[in-house]
Amino acid sequence: MKRLTTLLLSTILISTIAAAQDSGRKIPDVAVKNLDNSSFQTSQISNDGKPIIISFWATWCSPCKRELNTIAEDFDDWVDETGVKLVAISIDDARNQAKVKPYVDTQGWEYDVYIDPNGDFKRAMNVNNVPHTFLIDGEGNIVWQHNSYAPGDEEELRELVEKLAAGESID
């Protein structure tokens, strides 16, 4: 009986998930903080119909910083070619929160940076660990996501952004 229930429930669940995936998933609406401590709702993330990268990172995460610093080197070109916006979500808690702005300024990042001090946005986006990167299309749908970073991964991301900017599907 127990097994039957489990089987039944799993079937229902999987079919529901499969069906629901057809409609594009949007960015959930969660309150995060601006670097000046004022609040910001994540549903306000937008870029005039152009692609958006959302990257979860932390000041204590070396691969995260490698990824965002590598992208920063050519980010002007990315923006010129595709109009892309990069939203960097720091999951630093009270321990390191005050170090986020100095780090961002020192590195000269031209990203929109927000702080998610207790992981509310991280959980709503189902992020297990950082770095975790999402790609959002012009209609605000989450179309791609990637966990971890290895040097060279930025090339793949850039190609996907270019495709999106050109109106191509990236499936």
Binding site: L9, I12, L13, T16, I17, A19, A20, Q21, D22, S23, R25, K26, N126
Partner: peptide
């Protein structure tokens, strides 16, 4: 789970419109 399932089909226009399941 059962509620989630039935909610998904009880929507009049476009049975699954706007429902998102993720994890």
């Amino acid at each position: 789970i059962v509620a989630a399932y039935f909610t998904s089909f009880s929507q009049e226009s476009g049975a699954l419109e706007g429902i998102q399941i993720h994890g």
